[in-house]
Amino acid sequence: MDNEDKWLEWAVRLQAIAQTGLAYTKDVFDKERFEEIRQIAAEMLVIPSGLPLEKVEDLFCNESGYQTPKIDTRAAIFKEEKILLVQESDGRWALPGGWCDVDQSVMDNTIKEVKEEAGLDARAERVIAILDKAKNNPAQSAHHVTKIFILCTSLGGKFAANSETIACDYFGLDELPVLSEGKTTAKQIAMCFEAATDPHWQTRFD
């Protein structure tokens, strides 16, 4: 682990301690100290992230309650032995998906993301995997993230460019485009191919 990764790890841990303290303490003095710890954690992220302090504070210090991982849902949809990917504005590709909204179940959020990003109506079939992002994706994050991969079936629809994606297409495992690896890796796509062809697939988790 290099120094930048270590700084991120420390900042995330300090943020979690501060947020938990703010959620439970009744003492005014303690609240002030926990607010200060959270502010220091945000300032620690400015250099490794390259973001201005105001943006870091907005992303990092606006939650309340006990600190828990964020949930990211990803849909695996197949057609003629190829998998559906969506292209983001930076030109990279990923499985359709995103943060699970606070008022959505995993299934509902997966279906919603497919509609928003690929223009397709979908039916969620089964859970392929529940993976820790820090263990499986190269991009570091200020949030701890649990990624849930869902095998889905397309019920039809039509893609239209939107605020999140500029294209969608189906790809074979041996013809994958440049991926947004913080969201989807080639190994994760290979796992989805394996799950789609194995009727006895058992959900992977770490």
Rank of each mutant, 00 (worst) to 15 (best):
W10F: 09
D108K: 11
S64C: 05
A11P: 09
D108L: 06
P48Y: 07
A186K: 15
Q188R: 13
E4V: 10
K70E: 13
F29I: 11
T68K: 10
I166Y: 01
A190W: 02
L179A: 05
S105Y: 05
V12K: 13
I37E: 02
V127H: 03
R92A: 05
A161G: 14
E80P: 03
S154V: 01
L8T: 09
P96C: 05
A42Q: 08
L131K: 13
T110M: 10
V28T: 13
T184H: 04
H200C: 08
I130C: 06
P177N: 04
I189V: 14
E63V: 02
E63A: 08
F171D: 09
K158C: 13
L176A: 10
F205L: 12
F60C: 06
I71S: 00
I40P: 00
L53E: 11
G119W: 11
N3F: 12
S49I: 09
A18T: 07
A196S: 15
G21Y: 07
F149R: 02
C192I: 05
T165A: 09
T25A: 08
Q104W: 06
Y170C: 04
I148P: 01
C61W: 00
A124G: 03
D90E: 13
I130T: 10
V106L: 14
W99N: 06
I47Q: 07
N136R: 12
E4I: 12
R38T: 00
G119D: 10
I40E: 10
L51M: 14
A94E: 07
T197W: 04
Q19S: 07
T73C: 12
D30N: 08
P52W: 03
T184N: 04
V145F: 08
E36R: 10
A122I: 06
K82S: 10
V106Y: 03
T203H: 01
S180N: 15
M1T: 07
R33E: 13
L84E: 01
Q19F: 04
F34C: 02
S64E: 14
F29K: 12
Q140S: 13
S154R: 03
L176G: 08
F60D: 02
I148A: 05
H200P: 00
D121G: 00
G65K: 04
K133S: 15
S180W: 06
M107H: 03
C61H: 00
F171W: 14
E116D: 13
L14D: 09
V114F: 07
E194H: 04
S89A: 12
S163R: 13
S105C: 01
T203R: 11
F34P: 00
A190I: 05
L84A: 02
K183Q: 11
P199H: 08
